[in-house]
């Protein structure tokens, strides 16, 4: 089952910024809504030997592409996550896609742009910081 993002039009002001909120352990993370490509159910995640620990594994997408599923609990102090019925938030990073594991079905939230938000992920920055630099390499 695929759930495509849907912008909630109710009680949001024109200037508001909408985020996709997902949960890992005790912590909530936010993604700008336009970076989210789709949210998919993951039944099987395949381990990637030699990858750093924050890469939980590989997930096949349509068209034969394979994307990494990232476990943010290995990067941020979130407490032990419960990925038993995990969703994968697939985001656009340039031409590529990567996925963040979430314990829950993500939901949308809108804020006025001048409110500072906690737990916001800048996808481009994340991609550059955490992309794998080499085998036997570990975390950045």
């Amino acid at each position: 089952m695929n759930m495509t993002k849907e912008k909630s039009e109710t009680d949001s002001h024109i200037d508001d910024v909408t985020y996709n909120v997902f949960k890992v352990g005790e912590k909530e993370f936010l993604l700008p809504v336009d970076t989210v490509r789709e949210i998919i159910d993951v039944s099987r995640i395949f381990p990637i030997p030699m990858a750093p620990d924050y890469i939980f594994g590989a997930v096949p997408l349509h068209g034969g592409r394979v994307i990494p599923a990232i476990d943010l609990s290995k990067i941020h102090p979130t407490g032990e996550p419960l990925y038993s019925s995990a969703k994968l938030v697939v985001v656009n990073a340039g031409k590529e896609n990567i996925g963040f594991l979430s314990e829950t079905i993500p939901y949308l939230v809108s804020f006025s742009p001048d409110i500072p938000v906690d737990g916001l992920i800048n996808v481009e920055e994340f991609f550059e910081t955490y992309r794998v630099k080499g085998p036997w390499h570990g975390r950045p």
Binding site: F46, I48, A51, G64, G134
Partner: peptide
């Protein structure tokens, strides 16, 4: 088999040259 290039995020793992998906949907490097 159809080999897709490795996802850019993983391209540093140069010990793999790509990934494929088998008949039953298993990801293999």
């Amino acid at each position: 088999t159809i080999v897709k290039p490795l996802n850019e995020f993983l391209s540093g793992l140069y010990i793999y040259s790509g990934a494929t998906i088998s008949g039953d949907g298993t990801v293999r490097f």
